[in-house]
Design a binder for these strands. Structure first.
Lengths: 284, 284
DNA sequence: CCTGTCATGTTTATGGCGTACACAGGGTGT
DNA sequence: ACACCCTGTGTACGCCATAAACATGACAGG
Protein backbone atom coordinates (compact mmCIF):
# COMPACT_ATOMS: atom_id res chain seq x y z
CA UNK A 1 0.00 0.00 0.00
CA UNK A 2 2.64 2.47 1.00
CA UNK A 3 5.53 0.39 -0.21
CA UNK A 4 8.14 1.93 -2.43
CA UNK A 5 6.52 5.34 -2.16
CA UNK A 6 9.04 6.81 0.23
CA UNK A 7 10.07 9.51 -2.19
CA UNK A 8 6.63 10.37 -3.48
CA UNK A 9 5.28 13.59 -1.95
CA UNK A 10 1.95 13.31 -3.71
CA UNK A 11 1.27 10.06 -1.98
CA UNK A 12 2.01 11.86 1.29
CA UNK A 13 -0.60 14.44 0.35
CA UNK A 14 -3.13 11.67 -0.22
CA UNK A 15 -2.45 10.24 3.22
CA UNK A 16 -2.67 13.59 4.95
CA UNK A 17 -5.85 14.60 3.24
CA UNK A 18 -7.35 11.12 3.22
CA UNK A 19 -11.08 10.83 3.60
CA UNK A 20 -12.23 9.41 6.89
CA UNK A 21 -12.92 6.08 5.17
CA UNK A 22 -10.90 4.19 7.72
CA UNK A 23 -11.27 0.48 7.82
CA UNK A 24 -11.82 -0.62 11.37
CA UNK A 25 -9.66 -3.67 10.81
CA UNK A 26 -8.18 -5.25 13.81
CA UNK A 27 -4.63 -5.28 12.50
CA UNK A 28 -2.44 -2.28 11.94
CA UNK A 29 -3.83 0.88 10.46
CA UNK A 30 -2.59 4.33 9.62
CA UNK A 31 -4.48 5.91 12.48
CA UNK A 32 -3.21 3.47 15.07
CA UNK A 33 0.34 4.08 13.93
CA UNK A 34 -0.08 7.84 14.00
CA UNK A 35 -1.62 7.76 17.44
CA UNK A 36 1.15 5.53 18.75
CA UNK A 37 3.67 7.92 17.25
CA UNK A 38 2.07 10.88 19.01
CA UNK A 39 2.06 9.05 22.32
CA UNK A 40 5.68 8.09 21.94
CA UNK A 41 6.82 11.55 20.93
CA UNK A 42 4.83 13.09 23.79
CA UNK A 43 6.73 10.85 26.17
CA UNK A 44 10.21 10.84 24.70
CA UNK A 45 10.50 13.76 22.34
CA UNK A 46 10.99 13.68 18.61
CA UNK A 47 14.47 12.24 18.93
CA UNK A 48 12.98 9.32 20.82
CA UNK A 49 10.53 8.62 18.02
CA UNK A 50 11.87 5.64 16.12
CA UNK A 51 10.06 3.28 13.83
CA UNK A 52 11.27 0.41 15.97
CA UNK A 53 9.74 1.83 19.13
CA UNK A 54 6.45 2.73 17.47
CA UNK A 55 6.17 -0.83 16.16
CA UNK A 56 7.11 -2.30 19.51
CA UNK A 57 4.46 -0.22 21.22
CA UNK A 58 1.89 -1.68 18.85
CA UNK A 59 3.17 -5.23 19.08
CA UNK A 60 4.27 -5.53 15.46
CA UNK A 61 7.59 -5.72 13.71
CA UNK A 62 9.31 -2.58 12.56
CA UNK A 63 8.82 -3.21 8.89
CA UNK A 64 5.12 -3.76 9.20
CA UNK A 65 4.75 0.00 9.63
CA UNK A 66 6.07 0.57 6.15
CA UNK A 67 2.99 -1.15 4.76
CA UNK A 68 0.97 1.85 5.94
CA UNK A 69 3.34 4.83 6.15
CA UNK A 70 5.98 5.66 3.56
CA UNK A 71 8.60 6.50 6.16
CA UNK A 72 9.46 8.32 9.33
CA UNK A 73 9.24 11.81 7.86
CA UNK A 74 5.75 11.24 6.54
CA UNK A 75 4.73 9.74 9.86
CA UNK A 76 5.79 12.98 11.49
CA UNK A 77 3.75 14.98 8.98
CA UNK A 78 0.74 12.87 9.83
CA UNK A 79 1.33 13.28 13.56
CA UNK A 80 1.50 17.04 13.17
CA UNK A 81 -1.85 17.19 11.51
CA UNK A 82 -3.32 14.74 13.97
CA UNK A 83 -2.57 17.02 16.90
CA UNK A 84 -3.37 20.19 14.97
CA UNK A 85 -6.95 18.95 15.10
CA UNK A 86 -6.94 19.39 18.87
CA UNK A 87 -6.69 23.15 18.69
CA UNK A 88 -9.90 24.81 19.68
CA UNK A 89 -11.41 27.25 17.22
CA UNK A 90 -10.30 30.78 17.92
CA UNK A 91 -12.99 33.46 17.83
CA UNK A 92 -13.85 34.79 14.40
CA UNK A 93 -14.71 38.23 15.64
CA UNK A 94 -13.03 41.10 17.40
CA UNK A 95 -10.19 43.29 16.22
CA UNK A 96 -7.17 41.82 14.49
CA UNK A 97 -5.00 41.96 17.57
CA UNK A 98 -7.38 40.02 19.77
CA UNK A 99 -7.81 37.41 17.10
CA UNK A 100 -4.15 37.03 16.21
CA UNK A 101 -3.23 36.86 19.85
CA UNK A 102 -5.84 34.17 20.42
CA UNK A 103 -4.35 32.16 17.55
CA UNK A 104 -0.90 32.55 19.03
CA UNK A 105 -2.03 31.40 22.46
CA UNK A 106 -3.84 28.50 20.88
CA UNK A 107 -0.64 27.49 19.11
CA UNK A 108 1.29 27.92 22.31
CA UNK A 109 -1.09 25.65 24.17
CA UNK A 110 -0.72 23.07 21.40
CA UNK A 111 3.06 23.11 21.73
CA UNK A 112 2.78 22.84 25.47
CA UNK A 113 0.73 19.69 25.09
CA UNK A 114 2.95 18.25 22.36
CA UNK A 115 6.40 19.71 22.83
CA UNK A 116 7.86 17.74 19.93
CA UNK A 117 5.86 19.93 17.55
CA UNK A 118 8.47 22.63 17.92
CA UNK A 119 11.23 20.14 17.20
CA UNK A 120 9.86 19.24 13.79
CA UNK A 121 12.30 20.64 11.28
CA UNK A 122 12.74 20.57 7.56
CA UNK A 123 11.28 22.89 5.00
CA UNK A 124 9.24 20.38 3.08
CA UNK A 125 6.63 19.25 5.51
CA UNK A 126 3.30 19.05 3.77
CA UNK A 127 0.48 20.63 5.76
CA UNK A 128 -2.62 18.59 6.42
CA UNK A 129 -6.18 19.88 6.58
CA UNK A 130 -6.04 20.84 10.24
CA UNK A 131 -2.76 22.70 9.91
CA UNK A 132 -4.14 24.55 6.92
CA UNK A 133 -7.26 25.43 8.84
CA UNK A 134 -5.10 26.97 11.55
CA UNK A 135 -3.16 28.90 8.94
CA UNK A 136 -6.37 30.12 7.39
CA UNK A 137 -7.59 31.38 10.77
CA UNK A 138 -4.39 33.27 11.42
CA UNK A 139 -4.41 34.85 7.98
CA UNK A 140 -8.05 35.83 8.28
CA UNK A 141 -7.27 37.62 11.54
CA UNK A 142 -5.04 40.16 9.84
CA UNK A 143 -6.25 40.13 6.27
CA UNK A 144 -8.48 43.16 6.64
CA UNK A 145 -6.05 45.52 8.30
CA UNK A 146 -4.99 47.40 5.21
CA UNK A 147 -1.73 45.52 4.92
CA UNK A 148 -0.63 44.20 1.54
CA UNK A 149 -1.18 40.49 0.92
CA UNK A 150 2.55 39.84 1.18
CA UNK A 151 2.63 41.66 4.50
CA UNK A 152 -0.28 39.66 5.85
CA UNK A 153 1.54 36.45 5.00
CA UNK A 154 4.76 37.78 6.51
CA UNK A 155 3.00 38.70 9.75
CA UNK A 156 1.51 35.25 10.16
CA UNK A 157 4.79 33.56 9.30
CA UNK A 158 6.61 35.73 11.79
CA UNK A 159 4.24 34.89 14.61
CA UNK A 160 4.30 31.21 13.73
CA UNK A 161 8.07 31.02 13.80
CA UNK A 162 8.10 32.97 17.04
CA UNK A 163 5.92 30.28 18.58
CA UNK A 164 8.25 27.51 17.45
CA UNK A 165 11.28 29.40 18.55
CA UNK A 166 10.06 30.01 22.08
CA UNK A 167 8.61 26.53 22.41
CA UNK A 168 11.92 25.03 21.35
CA UNK A 169 13.59 26.89 24.18
CA UNK A 170 11.44 25.07 26.71
CA UNK A 171 11.57 21.69 24.98
CA UNK A 172 15.31 21.69 24.91
CA UNK A 173 15.59 22.50 28.57
CA UNK A 174 13.04 19.83 29.44
CA UNK A 175 14.72 17.26 27.21
CA UNK A 176 18.12 17.92 28.75
CA UNK A 177 16.62 17.54 32.20
CA UNK A 178 14.93 14.30 31.22
CA UNK A 179 18.13 12.80 29.89
CA UNK A 180 20.52 13.97 32.56
CA UNK A 181 18.28 14.00 35.61
CA UNK A 182 19.73 17.38 36.51
CA UNK A 183 17.50 20.44 36.40
CA UNK A 184 18.21 23.41 34.20
CA UNK A 185 19.01 25.74 37.07
CA UNK A 186 21.05 23.16 38.91
CA UNK A 187 23.18 22.42 35.88
CA UNK A 188 23.88 26.02 34.97
CA UNK A 189 24.42 26.82 38.62
CA UNK A 190 27.23 24.30 38.67
CA UNK A 191 29.15 25.92 35.86
CA UNK A 192 31.45 27.89 38.15
CA UNK A 193 34.30 27.40 35.74
CA UNK A 194 32.29 29.51 33.31
CA UNK A 195 31.13 32.15 35.78
CA UNK A 196 34.69 32.77 36.85
CA UNK A 197 35.37 34.26 33.41
CA UNK A 198 32.37 36.57 33.30
CA UNK A 199 33.50 39.46 35.52
CA UNK A 200 35.54 40.59 32.52
CA UNK A 201 32.29 41.60 30.85
CA UNK A 202 30.89 44.74 32.47
CA UNK A 203 27.31 44.73 31.19
CA UNK A 204 26.75 41.08 31.96
CA UNK A 205 28.18 41.64 35.41
CA UNK A 206 26.05 44.69 36.02
CA UNK A 207 22.86 42.94 34.96
CA UNK A 208 23.84 39.97 37.07
CA UNK A 209 24.36 42.11 40.13
CA UNK A 210 21.09 43.91 39.55
CA UNK A 211 19.33 40.54 39.62
CA UNK A 212 18.25 40.52 36.00
CA UNK A 213 18.98 36.82 35.69
CA UNK A 214 17.18 35.93 38.91
CA UNK A 215 13.56 36.42 37.93
CA UNK A 216 13.51 36.63 34.15
CA UNK A 217 10.60 37.81 32.05
CA UNK A 218 8.39 35.11 30.60
CA UNK A 219 9.90 34.81 27.12
CA UNK A 220 6.62 33.93 25.45
CA UNK A 221 4.54 36.68 26.99
CA UNK A 222 7.28 39.22 26.56
CA UNK A 223 7.99 38.34 22.95
CA UNK A 224 4.36 38.12 21.97
CA UNK A 225 3.66 41.59 23.36
CA UNK A 226 6.63 43.11 21.52
CA UNK A 227 5.72 41.35 18.30
CA UNK A 228 2.08 42.43 18.37
CA UNK A 229 3.14 45.98 19.23
CA UNK A 230 5.46 46.02 16.25
CA UNK A 231 2.76 44.74 13.94
CA UNK A 232 0.31 47.21 15.38
CA UNK A 233 2.64 50.06 14.61
CA UNK A 234 2.92 49.01 10.98
CA UNK A 235 -0.83 48.73 10.65
CA UNK A 236 -1.30 52.22 12.04
CA UNK A 237 1.34 53.65 9.76
CA UNK A 238 -0.42 52.12 6.78
CA UNK A 239 -3.67 53.54 8.00
CA UNK A 240 -2.21 56.99 8.38
CA UNK A 241 -0.46 57.15 5.06
CA UNK A 242 -3.56 55.82 3.39
CA UNK A 243 -6.09 58.51 4.04
CA UNK A 244 -6.62 61.94 5.44
CA UNK A 245 -8.84 61.10 8.37
CA UNK A 246 -6.18 59.30 10.36
CA UNK A 247 -5.61 58.42 13.95
CA UNK A 248 -3.20 60.16 16.27
CA UNK A 249 -0.13 57.97 16.69
CA UNK A 250 0.30 59.09 20.24
CA UNK A 251 -3.11 58.75 21.81
CA UNK A 252 -5.04 56.85 19.15
CA UNK A 253 -7.98 59.22 18.83
CA UNK A 254 -9.14 60.31 15.39
CA UNK A 255 -7.65 63.48 13.99
CA UNK A 256 -9.91 66.18 12.59
CA UNK A 257 -8.44 67.36 9.35
CA UNK A 258 -8.46 71.03 8.38
CA UNK A 259 -10.30 71.98 5.20
CA UNK A 260 -7.08 73.18 3.65
CA UNK A 261 -3.39 73.24 4.35
CA UNK A 262 -1.01 70.54 5.48
CA UNK A 263 -2.73 67.43 6.86
CA UNK A 264 -2.46 67.03 10.58
CA UNK A 265 -0.67 64.00 12.02
CA UNK A 266 -1.53 64.60 15.67
CA UNK A 267 -4.74 65.38 17.40
CA UNK A 268 -3.39 68.13 19.64
CA UNK A 269 -0.26 70.22 20.26
CA UNK A 270 0.56 68.24 23.37
CA UNK A 271 0.56 65.01 21.39
CA UNK A 272 2.75 66.62 18.78
CA UNK A 273 5.18 67.66 21.46
CA UNK A 274 5.16 64.23 22.99
CA UNK A 275 5.88 62.64 19.61
CA UNK A 276 8.71 65.07 19.11
CA UNK A 277 10.28 64.14 22.41
CA UNK A 278 9.84 60.53 21.52
CA UNK A 279 11.75 60.92 18.27
CA UNK A 280 14.34 62.99 20.03
CA UNK A 281 15.16 60.45 22.68
CA UNK A 282 16.71 58.13 20.16
CA UNK A 283 14.50 55.60 18.52
CA UNK A 284 11.68 55.23 16.12
CA UNK B 1 43.82 14.25 27.12
CA UNK B 2 40.14 14.39 26.44
CA UNK B 3 39.50 10.73 27.11
CA UNK B 4 36.72 9.69 29.37
CA UNK B 5 35.60 13.27 29.85
CA UNK B 6 32.58 13.09 27.61
CA UNK B 7 30.20 13.89 30.42
CA UNK B 8 32.26 16.57 32.11
CA UNK B 9 30.99 20.06 31.29
CA UNK B 10 33.78 21.77 33.19
CA UNK B 11 36.32 20.19 30.94
CA UNK B 12 34.34 21.58 28.01
CA UNK B 13 34.61 25.01 29.59
CA UNK B 14 38.38 24.61 29.78
CA UNK B 15 38.56 23.74 26.10
CA UNK B 16 36.35 26.64 25.06
CA UNK B 17 38.20 29.19 27.14
CA UNK B 18 41.63 27.68 26.61
CA UNK B 19 44.56 30.04 26.40
CA UNK B 20 46.09 30.36 22.97
CA UNK B 21 48.95 28.11 23.99
CA UNK B 22 48.49 25.90 20.98
CA UNK B 23 51.21 23.48 20.16
CA UNK B 24 52.04 23.67 16.49
CA UNK B 25 52.52 19.93 16.29
CA UNK B 26 52.20 18.33 12.95
CA UNK B 27 49.73 15.67 14.02
CA UNK B 28 46.18 16.26 15.09
CA UNK B 29 45.26 19.16 17.27
CA UNK B 30 42.12 20.68 18.69
CA UNK B 31 42.28 23.61 16.31
CA UNK B 32 42.73 21.49 13.23
CA UNK B 33 39.76 19.35 14.23
CA UNK B 34 37.59 22.37 14.91
CA UNK B 35 38.52 23.98 11.62
CA UNK B 36 37.84 20.74 9.74
CA UNK B 37 34.50 20.53 11.50
CA UNK B 38 33.60 24.05 10.46
CA UNK B 39 34.56 23.34 6.86
CA UNK B 40 32.54 20.16 6.82
CA UNK B 41 29.46 21.73 8.38
CA UNK B 42 29.71 24.68 6.00
CA UNK B 43 29.60 22.23 3.12
CA UNK B 44 27.13 19.64 4.34
CA UNK B 45 25.17 21.13 7.18
CA UNK B 46 25.13 20.07 10.78
CA UNK B 47 23.47 16.77 9.97
CA UNK B 48 26.39 16.01 7.66
CA UNK B 49 28.87 16.61 10.43
CA UNK B 50 29.96 13.19 11.64
CA UNK B 51 33.07 12.26 13.55
CA UNK B 52 33.89 9.81 10.78
CA UNK B 53 33.85 12.45 8.10
CA UNK B 54 35.84 14.95 10.13
CA UNK B 55 38.50 12.30 10.76
CA UNK B 56 38.49 11.23 7.12
CA UNK B 57 38.94 14.81 6.01
CA UNK B 58 42.01 15.02 8.22
CA UNK B 59 43.38 11.63 7.23
CA UNK B 60 43.00 10.01 10.65
CA UNK B 61 40.79 7.37 12.12
CA UNK B 62 37.53 8.28 13.74
CA UNK B 63 38.61 7.49 17.25
CA UNK B 64 41.72 9.60 17.06
CA UNK B 65 39.50 12.66 17.38
CA UNK B 66 38.40 11.56 20.82
CA UNK B 67 41.95 12.11 22.06
CA UNK B 68 41.39 15.84 21.59
CA UNK B 69 37.65 16.45 21.80
CA UNK B 70 35.34 14.85 24.35
CA UNK B 71 32.62 14.19 21.80
CA UNK B 72 30.53 15.51 18.99
CA UNK B 73 28.51 17.93 21.10
CA UNK B 74 31.59 19.58 22.50
CA UNK B 75 33.08 19.78 19.03
CA UNK B 76 30.01 21.72 17.97
CA UNK B 77 30.39 24.07 20.93
CA UNK B 78 33.97 24.70 19.91
CA UNK B 79 32.97 25.29 16.30
CA UNK B 80 30.36 27.82 17.38
CA UNK B 81 32.87 29.85 19.25
CA UNK B 82 35.42 29.53 16.48
CA UNK B 83 33.12 31.21 13.98
CA UNK B 84 31.74 33.68 16.52
CA UNK B 85 35.20 35.18 16.42
CA UNK B 86 34.62 36.19 12.80
CA UNK B 87 31.95 38.70 13.68
CA UNK B 88 33.15 42.24 13.26
CA UNK B 89 32.80 44.53 16.22
CA UNK B 90 29.58 46.48 16.09
CA UNK B 91 29.79 50.20 16.84
CA UNK B 92 29.78 51.12 20.52
CA UNK B 93 28.01 54.40 19.99
CA UNK B 94 24.74 55.66 18.65
CA UNK B 95 21.25 55.13 19.99
CA UNK B 96 20.13 51.73 21.19
CA UNK B 97 18.21 50.92 18.04
CA UNK B 98 21.11 51.52 15.71
CA UNK B 99 23.36 49.44 17.91
CA UNK B 100 20.96 46.56 18.45
CA UNK B 101 20.12 46.47 14.77
CA UNK B 102 23.82 46.39 13.93
CA UNK B 103 24.27 43.42 16.26
CA UNK B 104 21.34 41.66 14.64
CA UNK B 105 22.69 42.20 11.15
CA UNK B 106 26.10 41.05 12.29
CA UNK B 107 24.50 37.86 13.63
CA UNK B 108 22.57 37.45 10.43
CA UNK B 109 25.72 37.74 8.37
CA UNK B 110 27.37 35.14 10.57
CA UNK B 111 24.52 32.72 10.00
CA UNK B 112 24.63 33.39 6.29
CA UNK B 113 28.28 32.40 6.24
CA UNK B 114 27.81 29.39 8.50
CA UNK B 115 24.23 28.24 8.07
CA UNK B 116 24.67 25.31 10.43
CA UNK B 117 24.87 27.79 13.32
CA UNK B 118 21.11 28.07 13.29
CA UNK B 119 20.77 24.29 13.34
CA UNK B 120 22.64 23.94 16.60
CA UNK B 121 20.09 22.87 19.17
CA UNK B 122 20.08 21.84 22.77
CA UNK B 123 19.81 24.03 25.79
CA UNK B 124 23.14 23.23 27.36
CA UNK B 125 25.66 24.59 24.95
CA UNK B 126 28.39 26.36 26.84
CA UNK B 127 29.27 29.73 25.36
CA UNK B 128 32.88 30.47 24.56
CA UNK B 129 34.62 33.82 24.90
CA UNK B 130 33.62 35.08 21.46
CA UNK B 131 29.98 34.17 21.91
CA UNK B 132 29.96 35.87 25.29
CA UNK B 133 31.54 38.96 23.78
CA UNK B 134 28.73 39.11 21.25
CA UNK B 135 26.17 38.73 24.02
CA UNK B 136 27.86 41.49 26.00
CA UNK B 137 27.68 43.81 23.00
CA UNK B 138 23.99 43.15 22.48
CA UNK B 139 23.19 43.70 26.13
CA UNK B 140 25.19 46.89 26.28
CA UNK B 141 23.20 48.24 23.35
CA UNK B 142 19.96 48.29 25.32
CA UNK B 143 21.12 48.44 28.90
CA UNK B 144 20.71 52.18 29.27
CA UNK B 145 17.24 52.55 27.86
CA UNK B 146 15.41 52.63 31.17
CA UNK B 147 14.27 49.03 30.87
CA UNK B 148 14.56 46.75 33.86
CA UNK B 149 17.50 44.32 33.86
CA UNK B 150 15.16 41.40 33.23
CA UNK B 151 13.65 43.27 30.29
CA UNK B 152 17.05 44.01 28.82
CA UNK B 153 17.90 40.33 28.94
CA UNK B 154 14.54 39.40 27.47
CA UNK B 155 15.00 41.83 24.58
CA UNK B 156 18.38 40.42 23.66
CA UNK B 157 17.14 36.85 23.98
CA UNK B 158 14.17 37.63 21.79
CA UNK B 159 16.29 39.13 19.04
CA UNK B 160 18.76 36.27 19.24
CA UNK B 161 16.09 33.63 18.87
CA UNK B 162 14.54 35.60 16.04
CA UNK B 163 17.85 35.38 14.20
CA UNK B 164 18.06 31.63 14.64
CA UNK B 165 14.47 31.16 13.70
CA UNK B 166 14.71 33.05 10.43
CA UNK B 167 18.09 31.58 9.58
CA UNK B 168 16.70 28.11 10.11
CA UNK B 169 14.03 28.82 7.55
CA UNK B 170 16.66 29.40 4.89
CA UNK B 171 18.95 26.58 5.97
CA UNK B 172 16.19 24.06 5.79
CA UNK B 173 15.19 25.12 2.32
CA UNK B 174 18.80 25.06 1.17
CA UNK B 175 19.42 21.68 2.77
CA UNK B 176 16.37 20.17 1.13
CA UNK B 177 17.52 21.52 -2.22
CA UNK B 178 20.98 20.12 -1.73
CA UNK B 179 19.70 16.68 -0.91
CA UNK B 180 16.99 16.40 -3.50
CA UNK B 181 18.43 18.47 -6.31
CA UNK B 182 15.04 20.12 -6.70
CA UNK B 183 14.66 23.80 -5.88
CA UNK B 184 12.29 25.05 -3.24
CA UNK B 185 9.95 26.73 -5.69
CA UNK B 186 10.04 23.85 -8.11
CA UNK B 187 9.17 21.34 -5.42
CA UNK B 188 6.30 23.29 -3.94
CA UNK B 189 5.12 24.19 -7.40
CA UNK B 190 4.74 20.51 -8.12
CA UNK B 191 2.40 19.87 -5.21
CA UNK B 192 -0.76 20.17 -7.28
CA UNK B 193 -2.37 17.47 -5.19
CA UNK B 194 -2.14 19.90 -2.29
CA UNK B 195 -3.23 23.01 -4.15
CA UNK B 196 -6.35 21.26 -5.34
CA UNK B 197 -7.60 21.26 -1.76
CA UNK B 198 -6.95 24.90 -1.00
CA UNK B 199 -9.88 26.62 -2.72
CA UNK B 200 -11.93 25.51 0.28
CA UNK B 201 -10.07 28.11 2.34
CA UNK B 202 -11.26 31.60 1.42
CA UNK B 203 -8.52 33.76 2.94
CA UNK B 204 -5.71 31.64 1.55
CA UNK B 205 -7.39 31.70 -1.83
CA UNK B 206 -7.90 35.45 -1.73
CA UNK B 207 -4.28 36.11 -0.78
CA UNK B 208 -3.16 33.69 -3.45
CA UNK B 209 -5.20 35.43 -6.11
CA UNK B 210 -3.94 38.82 -5.00
CA UNK B 211 -0.39 37.56 -5.54
CA UNK B 212 0.67 37.64 -1.90
CA UNK B 213 2.63 34.43 -2.33
CA UNK B 214 4.34 35.56 -5.53
CA UNK B 215 6.75 38.14 -4.21
CA UNK B 216 6.93 37.67 -0.48
CA UNK B 217 8.42 40.09 2.01
CA UNK B 218 11.97 39.36 3.09
CA UNK B 219 11.27 37.51 6.35
CA UNK B 220 14.41 38.77 8.06
CA UNK B 221 14.02 42.43 7.18
CA UNK B 222 10.31 42.34 7.87
CA UNK B 223 10.62 40.58 11.20
CA UNK B 224 13.53 42.70 12.38
CA UNK B 225 11.63 45.90 11.68
CA UNK B 226 8.54 44.69 13.57
CA UNK B 227 10.62 43.46 16.46
CA UNK B 228 12.58 46.68 16.85
CA UNK B 229 9.38 48.68 16.56
CA UNK B 230 7.83 46.64 19.32
CA UNK B 231 10.84 47.08 21.54
CA UNK B 232 10.94 50.77 20.75
CA UNK B 233 7.35 51.16 21.85
CA UNK B 234 8.07 49.55 25.17
CA UNK B 235 11.05 51.77 25.77
CA UNK B 236 9.01 54.86 25.03
CA UNK B 237 6.19 53.74 27.24
CA UNK B 238 8.68 53.37 30.06
CA UNK B 239 9.94 56.85 29.36
CA UNK B 240 6.49 58.34 29.24
CA UNK B 241 5.14 56.58 32.28
CA UNK B 242 8.09 58.10 34.04
CA UNK B 243 6.66 61.51 33.18
CA UNK B 244 3.84 61.37 35.68
CA UNK B 245 5.51 59.97 38.76
CA UNK B 246 8.66 58.33 37.52
CA UNK B 247 11.67 56.84 39.14
CA UNK B 248 15.24 57.99 38.70
CA UNK B 249 17.12 55.51 36.53
CA UNK B 250 20.26 56.00 38.50
CA UNK B 251 19.31 55.81 42.13
CA UNK B 252 15.74 54.56 41.93
CA UNK B 253 14.10 57.26 44.04
CA UNK B 254 10.93 58.90 42.77
CA UNK B 255 11.32 62.01 40.65
CA UNK B 256 9.28 65.10 41.42
CA UNK B 257 7.93 66.44 38.17
CA UNK B 258 7.71 70.14 37.46
CA UNK B 259 4.27 71.58 36.84
CA UNK B 260 5.22 72.49 33.30
CA UNK B 261 8.08 72.17 30.86
CA UNK B 262 10.16 69.20 29.92
CA UNK B 263 9.75 66.21 32.19
CA UNK B 264 12.66 65.35 34.42
CA UNK B 265 14.38 62.00 34.02
CA UNK B 266 16.67 62.20 37.03
CA UNK B 267 16.03 63.08 40.64
CA UNK B 268 19.02 65.35 41.03
CA UNK B 269 21.86 66.97 39.05
CA UNK B 270 24.34 64.52 40.51
CA UNK B 271 22.33 61.58 39.21
CA UNK B 272 22.06 63.23 35.82
CA UNK B 273 25.81 63.66 35.77
CA UNK B 274 26.31 60.05 36.79
CA UNK B 275 24.06 58.85 33.98
CA UNK B 276 25.94 61.04 31.56
CA UNK B 277 29.26 59.58 32.56
CA UNK B 278 27.82 56.12 32.31
CA UNK B 279 26.66 56.71 28.76
CA UNK B 280 29.96 58.31 27.96
CA UNK B 281 32.09 55.40 29.11
CA UNK B 282 30.84 53.16 26.34
CA UNK B 283 27.56 51.66 27.34
CA UNK B 284 28.81 49.82 30.38
C1' DC C 1 71.77 3.06 27.85
C1' DC C 2 67.64 1.13 29.90
C1' DT C 3 63.02 1.77 31.41
C1' DG C 4 58.69 3.58 33.02
C1' DT C 5 55.30 7.09 31.75
C1' DC C 6 52.47 9.61 28.95
C1' DA C 7 50.50 11.49 24.75
C1' DT C 8 48.74 9.98 20.74
C1' DG C 9 46.61 7.15 17.24
C1' DT C 10 44.31 2.46 16.00
C1' DT C 11 41.40 -1.61 16.28
C1' DT C 12 37.51 -3.80 17.56
C1' DA C 13 33.01 -4.03 19.31
C1' DT C 14 28.32 -2.48 21.02
C1' DG C 15 23.96 -0.74 20.37
C1' DG C 16 21.08 2.40 17.91
C1' DC C 17 18.91 4.12 13.67
C1' DG C 18 15.96 4.08 8.80
C1' DT C 19 14.70 1.22 5.40
C1' DA C 20 15.47 -2.08 1.03
C1' DC C 21 14.31 -6.65 -0.26
C1' DA C 22 12.78 -11.33 -0.38
C1' DC C 23 9.48 -14.10 1.55
C1' DA C 24 5.05 -16.23 3.89
C1' DG C 25 0.27 -16.79 4.90
C1' DG C 26 -4.49 -15.79 4.54
C1' DG C 27 -8.45 -13.75 2.40
C1' DT C 28 -10.75 -12.55 -2.06
C1' DG C 29 -12.13 -12.52 -6.94
C1' DT C 30 -12.57 -15.45 -10.92
C1' DA D 1 -9.38 -24.71 -7.81
C1' DC D 2 -6.50 -21.27 -8.76
C1' DA D 3 -4.05 -16.88 -8.92
C1' DC D 4 -3.45 -12.69 -6.85
C1' DC D 5 -2.85 -9.20 -3.57
C1' DC D 6 -2.84 -7.34 0.96
C1' DT D 7 -0.53 -7.60 5.06
C1' DG D 8 3.00 -8.82 8.19
C1' DT D 9 7.91 -10.98 8.95
C1' DG D 10 13.04 -11.83 8.88
C1' DT D 11 17.24 -10.63 7.40
C1' DA D 12 20.51 -7.43 5.97
C1' DC D 13 22.95 -3.04 4.77
C1' DG D 14 24.98 1.13 5.77
C1' DC D 15 25.11 4.83 8.63
C1' DC D 16 25.90 6.89 13.34
C1' DA D 17 28.49 7.86 18.35
C1' DT D 18 31.49 6.11 21.35
C1' DA D 19 33.46 2.62 24.97
C1' DA D 20 37.57 -0.24 25.83
C1' DA D 21 41.71 -2.36 24.95
C1' DC D 22 45.79 -2.04 22.50
C1' DA D 23 50.07 -0.17 19.90
C1' DT D 24 53.59 3.20 19.21
C1' DG D 25 56.85 6.63 19.81
C1' DA D 26 58.91 10.55 22.47
C1' DC D 27 60.98 11.74 26.46
C1' DA D 28 62.60 11.97 31.42
C1' DG D 29 65.05 9.93 35.27
C1' DG D 30 68.05 6.69 36.98
Amino acid sequence: MARGRAGDPDHAVELLWREGGARPRQGLSLDRIVRAGVALADAEGLAGLSMRKVAERLGFTTMSLYRHVPGRDQLIDLMCDEVAAEAGAAPEEGDWRTRLEACAREGWELRRRHPWLAEVRGGRHIPGPHAIARYERMLSAVVDTGLTPAEVIAVVGLVGRFLDSEALLLVEAAEAERRSGVSHEEWWGGRDALFERLPAYPTITRLWEEGGFDDPEDPFEFGLARLLDGISLMIHERYESRDETGVCTVCGTPVDQPASGRPRAYCSPSCRQRAYRRRRSGGA
